[in-house]
Nucleic acid binder design. Structure first.
Lengths: 215, 215, 215, 215
DNA sequence: CATGAATGAGGATTCATTCAT
DNA sequence: CATGAATGAATCCTCATTCAT
């Protein structure tokens, strides 16, 4: 009876291996330029075998992304629901949640951003795109709620909730992508964490500024 | 007598048309997924004709990007050399320069960012990549110099020049890509300018904060 | 009125130039691999212009070959009709005729041999092939006649007229092609003439051998 | 258990089929004019399948030629090392070795000669050309050594070793190509063997001639 | 007359995907 | 279950050829 279970586990392990390989290569080469053969030879399986685990290239790609976005959403939600944190604490918490997601699955997160950025969409199912968009929306909504709260409490200067949400998110993604890009130019050290912290410090300081003659 | 000139102009016009079509499609689909046929049918020319204007797909792609990066560099340089501006003015000036470049050629700028982000690199000539990286480096160096100056003059809290440069750049690119991405979700209005202004306001406020026991 | 003539002459000159260029390039690259553009840029004309002189690539190619074969036929015929020569003299005369043709138009002669050898025929008109074959046949018939005469006169050991004709011709072409081939390996000196003379000396000696129990 | 072996054999069989088809078509049309589609449809496989057996057109072509040249070299070497043969015997032996190679693989041998003759070289890898040239050189060197020996022993009139080697080789190739060419004119009987024997008889007679006032 | 421009028809090569074993 | 083998459908690119100016 343990046999069935072992089989199950092995099957899952294979699936994981394939996804792990796919992750790296999709990130490195982009969706269109990645071949099934690339992935297959990385996991030392035949291409045909991969097709017995994933219906097609698009499905495989899809399978990678949702997991991570789910993780991100959960992290953000945990901060969002954390009653012990004040508004500023939550902003910083969000940053850490994003960073934690990055640590959890750096490659996939980048992939998602790429997806959001490059229209590999033509070849990706609408369904996946919709799911990704949904999750992103839900995640950002929580961040917006906190910013709104900050405005209500007079901590932040209000009236820019949507914009500020976008700014927080964009600063994170912008830095992530840019640091990755820089690594290609100079693959030395990686300052992502430091720079990200700094960016959120600056933004938070800006947000806390009193609401007077703004500009 | 004007015949030669007219021919010239027509030739240039065709070139422009092709580039315009290419720009859009490369942006929409990414480099690898864009076919010469896509471009050709958009301009209503045969593929072969495109090849008489551009040596190959890579050249065509290259031809698009360098122009815009050059434009950006020039805009940044103008701000950089503007003696009438203080440090804060220059930071805002940089933002406007970036935005101006975006207005000048929104599609290509996005393309460049994609290039920096997605490793379509495998298929793009090293030469082009090097040129793009060079220009980017030069541009960022000017921004760094101004931040340095701000620190020297005690306007900013120093010691983060590189990070802050990256933050300014990343915030811009992050927002640009994100706003584009959002447009796909909801193609309604476009808040890029507003959000960008806001982001730089926040960052500038953060930068001006006194230098005490920061974190 | 001289105008018309000049025009005529210029036209002819252009034709010649084009043929000269074509000759070299066809030889160098073979028929299929030679492009009209190759030829055009060598003569510094546009491709379209070439098309106003020659109906198409095949015609151009054809135009080259017949001239030379005609020349060869004439040379061979002169020897054939030369009453002052004995049989041996004519054999040597044939060799010299071939060599003279080679000197007259080395490139084209090689081209003809290539044509005979490589079936670029698929793309060449049957008409041309037929013409070439005709001329070759006529030429060889004259050589055969002389060998026959040698046999009748008891100078040669008879019964091998056809074979011997082929041998004379093949030795010539074989050497020509081989020497050319060698030049690609080692482009130093060119021993074609010497080797050709030697070959015909050997063959002639062989032919003159008495007719005993041969083999 | 024999499954693996059968698979192996089938794979080899396919490879052979492809090569056989390629051989004929390359010969018939020349390298440049032969399309992968030509070959594929002859073996009733898809073009893609051929690419799973051979990396590209050039490789396929290469795979054909080297085998045969190797065979030729071995045949020549066997004669060369045969201690029971005198100099004349070896010359005749060389001829037979060439002819044997022709019988072994008539199409490919012609292909090689074509390669040596037509500059399909532009499209063929330098590596292959070099290998072919090497083998040819080695083969000819053995023939030259025997001619040299003949001169040393006073059997031949010396001083023409290189030329005579070229003559032997060129006569063989010249006849081979010419007979093939004639077959196109008149595809009746094939006198190659007879003519080749005759040619070598003549040449050998010539070589044996005493060394007096030669010309 | 000469040509720049345009293109249809391939041709080499790749790749996602299927299927029999 | 894993895979080698096969392939249709692209995709990039080339080239002979035409035509309006």
């Amino acid at each position: 009876m343990g046999v069935k279970e072992r089989k199950q586990r092995e099957k899952q392990a294979r699936t994981d291996q394939i996804q792990a390989a796919a992750k790296e290569i999709f990130l490195q080469k982009g969706y269109a330029a990645t071949t099934m053969e690339d992935i297959a030879s990385r996991v030392e399986l035949s291409v045909a075998t991969i097709y017995s685990y994933f219906k097609n290239k698009g499905e495989l790609y899809a399978s990678l992304n949702l997991i991570t976005l789910k993780f991100l959403e959960e992290q953000i939600e945990m901060v969002y629901r954390d009653e012990t944190l004040g508004v500023e604490g939550k902003i910083i918490g969000f940053k850490d949640a994003m960073y934690k997601t990055f640590l959890y699955e750096p490659l996939i997160l980048k992939n998602i951003l790429h997806l959001q950025v490059v229209n590999a969409f033509a070849e990706i199912s609408d369904d996946l795109i919709e799911k990704i968009n949904d999750m992103t929306r839900r995640t950002l909504r929580m961040m917006a709620a906190v910013l709104q709260q900050g405005a209500s409490q007079g901590i932040f200067c209000g009236g820019h909730v949507m914009a500020d949400t976008d700014i927080l998110w964009s600063t994170f993604t912008g830095l992530l992508l840019w640091e990755e890009s820089k690594k290609r130019i100079n693959p030395a050290r990686d300052y992502f964490k430091t720079t990200l912290d700094r960016a959120f410090d600056l933004l938070l300081l800006g947000l806390q500024k009193k609401c007077n003659p703004e500009k």
